[in-house]
Design a protein around this nucleic acid. Structure first.
Lengths: 339, 339
DNA sequence: GTTCAGAACGCAAGCGTTTGCGCCCTGCTA
DNA sequence: TAGCAGGGCGCAAACGCTTGCGTTCTGAAC
């Protein structure tokens, strides 16, 4: 039993025991100069003994700082967001920053979120993980008056860490073309209310460029858009297969979409890759198990980098430089020449 | 442009404009009695106008409360934790509580985590999502002196929301036995340093009970333990298949493990379920796609319930009652009578 | 023996709220 | 008309820390 439900020790208590003033305790504990080594050690020992921890509220009040950063994710419960979240956490924690988790669900709620800005005054910075923001929301965002970094998507005017989506798209589609496909479908995603997402348009650009480079005409029939889920992928594939002239290969927005699509193919009795080739993006853990060709993006670097950017801007106060992470093709068994 | 980098408005500012004292503003804004309707409205309007938000630091300092709750997850980057996290968030937010996210990684680091207790003094309550805690750590935990609820595992002395793991295990294995299997393997998980996890032992109990009920002798050879990952599942399956008398059915700790195991089976050229039946636990989104028979647990209710328990205990101060969530068998194509 | 520069430390004024208590009304009762 | 209750509000003391500035003290330079 330590102290039961007694009030937690404060600096006053430490000061009393150390026979010094609270100022000295504050300086000693924070590593500020103006305290002799001996005193500093004594104070440290006593604080330790009392298992004293500084009150973040009081400290924050005095320094006008919160030592917290908001990480906000969109509704989709995809693996991607958790991976980024998890990789950001240790970096922030190492820097003494706490991570406030927010999830904005649905567009209605999304507006409410940005209107209320629950993070206002609660954080020193924010990381948005592939959260789409409209101009209006953006304005609200600015009233938070803290540095913001985007992870996994680019929003004009904010520092970001992202991949070159168009390039990733090209890597995927170029591969399909290289092995011989000419009729290539694309499965894109849309938000719950039909909004388009930035990574999606980027990847589609890559798709178009790849086609153009190979002089393959763009066929709008081969482009379907679904919500971001396994099931969406499955439905999209059904739709593509129902075309009078279905694609021989499909580029899916992500591995999760691709895996959903593969399910449809199997259900239809079609073989991968002999009947239809398929390529995704991410290198999701399931991708290897599904033998899915994909374009790997360094997901964990998103979180790490975004966190580091935040830490730096908070420490140095300098606007962080954007970071573009590399992607590369991982060829597995889901792609092969058309038969 | 709102106020650029000016300091945020405080209660003083609102009070001045409303020609009242800060006490009145405080009472008006917090809904406390002792303020006339007219004054209250005037203050509300002015606060709105200034887009004033209360300083959580100051408010917290005065009330000795943080309005934050810690959610801590273990290292494993499994879908489960994110699902629970995501379902807890809206409940907490609706109650005006912010969610501080912590992840304890590795056992070495795990000790450090409990030793330092980074959440100390930063939260009003904590939710541990299937985080194993030793007796020693538990003692440390108590020094946080805030209510703690366990989601997805039971730790003696803490309120929890969980499923009956043994029952879930039985549901899975009873099913295998019912369709005719007698030689049934089990894939269990271990922590990074070989520790056993509470849900794991529970499920194993269910396995043993099911065997016992069917008078099938327990064969230790049929029990393998691996780390909690897709790959772990695959390796476990390899091991089971290498037995001189391999099982005709396998009960996997979770769907992710099961899916890894299925991969091994396919690689070996074995067919599911004709050669080997397999059943998991969770009803992971991938389970349906993989046509995996499983025992569904209401994952989202873990988060919701845990959050609600926290909200209640914070509001009413009464120790919350434990909640045991139901599980039920979902039969799909991965199980069938042995051939 | 002065003088003086630092080093080491304390004082006290914040930081922005909450809240117990007391004061001043207004309006009603006797 | 005096008395009184109670609503509406302000005062000021916390809450637990940080930090500019002032004070004391020690030791070295002269």
């Amino acid at each position: 039993m330590t102290d039961g439900s007694r009030r937690a020790p404060n600096m006053q208590d430490v000061a009393r025991l150390a026979r010094v003033s609270v100022s000295t305790v504050s300086r000693a504990l924070s590593g500020a100069p103006g305290v002799s080594g001996a005193t500093r050690r004594r104070i440290g020992a006593i604080a330790e003994e009392l298992s004293y921890v500084i009150s973040p509220e009081a400290s924050g009040l005095a320094t006008r700082t919160t030592r917290k950063v908001a990480v906000v994710v969109p509704e989709t419960e995809s693996w991607f967001y958790y991976a980024v979240l998890c990789s950001a956490e240790p970096v922030l924690r190492a820097a003494g920053l706490d991570l406030l988790f927010y999830r904005v669900t649905g567009t209605a709620d999304r507006n409410a979120f940005f209107a209320e800005l629950p993070a206002r005054r609660k954080v020193d910075a924010a990381i948005l993980i592939a959260v789409p923001v409209t101009d209006e929301q953006r304005e609200r965002l600015d009233t938070m008056n803290v540095p913001i970094v985007m992870a996994g998507s680019r929003v004009r005017g904010y520092p970001y860490v992202a991949v070159d989506e168009a390039k990733a798209g090209r890597q995927a589609v170029d591969h399909l073309i290289r092995v011989g496909h000419r009729r290539i479908g694309i499965i894109r995603i849309v938000g719950p209310e039909g909004e388009t997402r930035q990574p999606d348009t980027g990847r589609e650009t890559g798709y178009r460029r790849a086609l153009a480079a190979a002089k393959i005409p763009f066929d709008p029939q081969l482009e379907v858009r679904v919500d971001f889920s396994l099931d969406g992928g499955a439905r999209a594939m059904d739709q593509l297969l129902s075309l009078e002239q279905p694609p021989t290969a499909v580029f899916a927005f992500s591995d999760e979409i691709a895996i959903g699509a593969m399910r449809s193919l199997r259900r239809m009795g079609l073989r991968i890759p002999s009947d239809v080739s398929i390529v995704g993006i991410d290198d999701h853990p399931m991708a290897e198990l599904s033998d899915l060709t994909t374009v790997r993006q360094p997901v964990h670097l998103f979180g790490e980098t975004a966190a580091r950017m935040v830490v730096d801007v908070l420490k140095k106060g300098t606007e962080p430089a954007n970071v573009v992470l590399p992607t590369h093709l991982v060829v597995r068994g889901s792609t092969a020449p058309p038969s």
